[in-house]
Design a protein around this nucleic acid. Structure first.
Lengths: 110, 110
DNA sequence: GAAATATTTCGAATGTTGTCGAACTATATG
DNA sequence: CATATAGTTCGACAACATTCGAAATATTTC
């Protein structure tokens, strides 16, 4: 957890910043719930076939804030590399970037 | 990592906020280095005798920023419960709050 | 108690964030 | 192509963050 290079510190601080807003943290946790939890082999199969998890509108309902604000938060989480995003028809689907999650996790388990 | 209660989310977001400033993250990492790393039984003895780890001036030199700014960051880390602070003569000594660290860690390992 | 050292508090300057609403763009469907 | 649905972009605004320097406080030492 220590002995970090300078650029790694900046990068890590940036990820913490992305998670430092309660609404963004809620979005992230919801995606985690949907994408990454309790992955048995069978469930993983499902996810591999359809990795997208939730869209802007879903979070709007969940958090009671307007789409433009959600859009802003999604952009921020994406910028920090914490989630991935892809259009599917009218919807923008979001899911956890598991590689980044693994990095942040490894920070806390060293 | 999911299934968090509302107040836990706010609390966690607040800890991430404290770590979202690169200078505060550097201070935190430095304290981790000093306090928590490589604790063999003998080293632990030492620490138990003198749990304080670094003072405001040390961080000032390390980061090249003025004491008032360090003081502010220390206050912030303390407010978030990430570090503990105690006066020892002229100096204010700081060390990691290992209980809080454990909480944040457990978030990432669920 | 004066001087030196360590830290805090305060006020100011400057920049960033979170949120909204309005206007815009993209996609799907009658 | 008109309409409906889903998101984005933009501009505004208030709140908050980062940093500094000056002045204040606490502690130690002479």
């Amino acid at each position: 957890m220590s002995n970090y290079r300078e650029d790694q510190i900046e990068e890590l601080a940036d990820k913490f910043k992305a998670l430092s807003n309660p609404n963004r943290l809620r979005i992230f946790l919801r995606l985690y719930e949907l994408c990454c939890q309790k992955m048995t082999t069978e469930e993983l199969e499902e996810v591999v076939g359809n990795p997208k998890c939730a869209c802007v509108g879903d979070f709007g309902k969940m958090l009671g804030i307007v789409p433009s604000t959600i859009s802003h938060h999604i952009k921020e989480l994406k910028r920090a590399g914490l989630i991935k995003v892809e259009r599917n028809g009218q919807r923008i689907e979001c899911w956890i970037d598991t590689q980044t999650l693994a990095k942040v996790r490894s920070f806390f388990s060293a």
